[in-house]
Structure formats: structure tokens, C-alpha cells
Amino acid sequence: MPLLEVEDLGVEFRRRGLEPFRAVDGVSFDVDPGQTVGLVGESGCGKSVTSLAIMRLLMPRGNRVTGRVSFDGTDLLRLPIRDMRDRRGRDLAMIFQDPLSSLNPVISIGLQVTEVLQRHRGMKQSAARAEARDLLDQVGIPDPDRRLKEYPHQLSGGMRQRALIAMAVACRPRLLIADEPTTALDVTIQAQILQLLGTLVRENGTALIMITHDLGVVAGLCDEVNVLYGGRIVERANRHELFATPQHPYTHGLLASIPRLDAPAGERLHPVQGSVSDNIPWTSACAFAPRCGNEVDRCRSASPELTAAPLGHGHQLRCFNPVLPDGAGVGATGGSAPVDSAGEAL
């Protein structure tokens, strides 16, 4: 049984003087214990908002959250806020992109970690102190005794992120949500942090939701990958399938736009046209249609559903005219392709 089931999650921003905007539009996915699930997409695709909605960290004012987030059988969205607060940190923890602003600048690292331990695990001061030391040691912070007394600004970016991870895993949460945890870090430090996260997941059996824009990070870390666009999942597969046979034009385009370190030099990139601001709402069309080079008439008049992809096992797709490798049979050239591979959706 999955640890976390997100069903038809929707988040609508309502702001004074603006039309309501659906940031997350019917997102569903499961996370098994010990599994790493990736949410990938560009800015504005709703990946961060999804995680905040799961943690119930969106302001109740101006944001309407719908759907069901069931964690170990309990619907988190319907939990009294007091119970939810208890679960945060204990059952579910989160790591953010900017480690400096996520730490309290005027409290020592040691106090910030022990605070979590005292609150959620009811530990005594001295026991918490010892545990905090062990935690810092565990996340690879050298000389933890000295670091415990230091303040966030005295630590480097990588060390701060480690300290945050230490706080997040302090209570052995069963689910860890990492929101772009390495985006603010240098590549060599990023490699350290990704290695650390991988180890934590493997050894503690923690489930991890990895939110990132970097397909490279996903390729190395995630078991299952969800590609988001305009607030909906457009493609879902395990990582080997996704990178071997990407079928949604958007995923395809993303992969073609990334310069690869191992590609022959001078190879031209094939970017997705336009930008995220060219989105259209999902209501009666495919939101990606204006940027898609593969669209057919139906893409503009009907909204595709997430259904089984023509290729692969458990590979799901939200597209009327997927991109298929040559010789796969289905009309890959686009334009007048008569076969709708996702036709049964309607």
C-alpha cells in the first residue's frame, strides 16, 4: 500500500482584482515507502505548490485546495490544523531551496536542531543535544560539536543545506519532500547533497518527493518521474523508461533543449518554442498546444486525459499525438495523424 496517495489535488489562487488561477489542476500520484518520486517541470508548472499543498503550508486565505492527500490512510487536507502541525516534522518533513532563509539567523544551529527533537520526540535537553550531534555527523558535517554552537551565516551554503537536512530527518519522517534542494548550490556541492539524500533514502527507508527543474538530477535519483506542465502531470514513467522513450512532446522538447555534457560538440539544440507564459488553460484544450510542434486539430478543441502510453509499462501520458520513435507504428509525424493514441480517454 502506498505511503502517500495524492488524488486529484487542485490549488486555485484567488487574488483580489485578478481572475482565479489554477496553479495545480488535478494532480494524482502515489509514493511508496522508500521510493523516490520526482516532480519535474519549469517555473510555474505547479511543482512547488503541489508540495506546499501536501504539507498544508499554503495560506488558507486566497488559496483553495481541493482533492485528497492520504498519508498512511489519513486525509491530510481534512486533518485539524493542530494535528497537521504535529505531523509536520514528525511524519512529513520538507527541505527548501534556499537554506539561508530557511534557517533562523539569530539562533545557533544546535538550538534549532534540538528544538525539533524536543518538540517532536519529547527528548530531554541533554539527550537532544547528543542526538543533534549525531545527526550533524550523519549528514556529513565535519566537527559537529563546533558547528552546533555556530550560527547559520557562519556556515557555507552546502553546510547549511546539510544542517537543514539534519533538521528534516531529525524525527525520522516517513516522507521527505525536497523542493529544489540543490538549485542554489554549486555542482560539486550538489553532488555531495544528492549523494547524501540517496543514502538517507536507502538506509532509513524514507520516501522522498524530489522537486526539481533539472532532468539530470532526476535521472540519477528518482525511481518514478512525473513531468508537470501548466499544473497537470503530462507524463509519468519510471526513470529508465522516461529517458529512453519520452513520448510527450514537452518531455521530448525538454530533453532536446538541454546541452549534454556527453553529446558531440557543436550539435544544435532543439528548444521548445515560446515560453511558459504562452500557456492556455486546460479547460477545453491542451495547455501545451501553443508551444507544441506536434499538435493536431483536436489538441485545440479537447483536453487530453492521463492514460496509458502507447509504449512501455506503467508509462502514462496526457497527449493526443505523442512523439514516438521512428518505426513505432503510430503516426509520429504529427499534422494529419489519424490515430489518436490516447483516444480512449474521451
Binding site: S48, V49, L52, L57, L58, M59, G62, R88, G89, A93, M94, F96, S101, S102, L103, N104, I107, Q112, E115, V116, L164, M167
Partner: peptide, 12 residues
């Protein structure tokens, strides 16, 4: 958890 309010503001 520390830093959440900050993030919340940012998200808003």
C-alpha cells in the same frame, strides 16, 4: 519547523 512562514510568504 523553522523557515516555513518565510516560505509561505514567498509562496504567496
Amino acid at each position: 519547523m523553522v523557515g516555513l512562514t518565510k516560505k509561505k510568504e514567498r509562496i504567496d
